[in-house]
């Protein structure tokens, strides 16, 4: 009897502690998302108004208009590319960090995190200065007689370069968090068993770090798909992505139902990537 009372009390406490966050999430996440969903089935009125009649119009436009489908495809493919490049650039750094120790490690960690202390807008303009036609790279290359036949900014190239750098801290931190299972002794064991370093990497290090890779990739993919400041600035208005289009529809065109429809589409993409992630995690185990 007393035990049961204890349990009831403990459950009551758990509910009491969880209640605030549940309420906050219902209020600032669930309600707006449901609102978006219902907005996507409403007619857009001139001047930013939202109709009251139910309509499939937004969704049928979305499916029929090649522009949107291309933006979706471009968003997903570009984000996958950025995620892959971020992984490629971050993995060696994370591995090195994982193996270093003491003050050196602390110092390196601070270096990794420090970009997050400046706003993405500032860093993006920094990339404009570096990548522009009169910027550091093109200018520098011209000094030594190399003229790049293509632009590095105000196109897809600029967006990919900028976002890759901007997302690297997140990737490195996620990788580090996932490297818990990586015991340096395992690698040494592989070496003593006759594995060359590259074999030890493929057969032991990589599989053991797979959970971290999956986590980092999920995080970076989601951040890449949803980012719009960097694509807007570095894309120069020529790179049409889902996120930038949502921004345009909501803020510029004031077509809230269209923006809502696109937002729900992005949410579906996120949902699918989350499913893929959990599948991958289960496969590693």
């Amino acid at each position: 009897m007393a035990q049961q009372g204890d349990e009831t009390r403990r459950n009551g406490l758990a509910i009491a502690l969880l209640l605030p966050i549940v309420l906050v999430n219902v209020g600032v996440f669930l309600y707006p998302v449901l609102n978006l969903l219902s907005t996507s089935f409403k007619e857009a009125l001139p001047g930013g108004g939202i109709g009251t009649e139910f309509t499939w119009a937004n969704w049928s436009t979305l499916v029929q208009d090649r522009f949107y489908m291309e933006a979706l495809l471009r968003s997903v493919l570009m984000s996958l590319l950025i995620t892959f490049l971020t992984l490629l650039c971050s993995y060696p750094i994370a591995l090195y960090l994982h193996r270093s120790s003491g003050q050196w490690r602390t110092f390196l960690l601070v270096l990794v995190v420090s970009p997050l202390l400046t706003s993405a807008v500032v860093r993006t303009y920094g990339w404009v200065a570096v990548l522009a036609d009169t910027g550091l790279i093109k200018n520098g290359l011209e000094q030594i007689g190399i003229t790049l036949p293509f632009r590095l900014v105000y196109n897809m190239t600029g967006v990919v370069i900028g976002l890759t750098e901007i997302l690297m801290p997140y990737m490195i931190l996620a990788l580090l968090a996932g490297f818990g299972r990586l015991d340096p002794r395992c690698e040494e064991a592989a070496l003593t068993l006759g594995a060359r370093p590259i074999q030890a990497f493929w057969r032991v290090v990589l599989p053991l770090t797979a959970p971290g890779i999956a986590l980092g990739c999920l995080l970076c993919f989601v951040l890449a798909v949803s980012s719009f400041i960097t694509p807007r600035i570095l894309g120069g208005g020529r790179v049409f992505l889902l996120a930038t289009e949502i921004y345009d529809q909501a803020i510029v065109t004031l077509n809230w139902p269209a923006a809502g429809t696109l937002s729900i589409l992005v949410l579906v993409v996120f949902g699918l990537s989350l499913i893929l992630y959990t599948r991958a995690l289960r496969a590693f185990d």
């Binding site: 015991d183 002794r185 395992c186 040494e188 064991a189 592989a190 070496l191 594995a195 057969r203």
Partner: peptide
């Protein structure tokens, strides 16, 4: 990897 020695670790270091 070219020494052909077997090493048993304190922590076992199994994969």
């Amino acid at each position: 990897y070219r020494r052909d020695m077997g090493l048993v670790f304190q922590s076992y270091a199994l994969f």
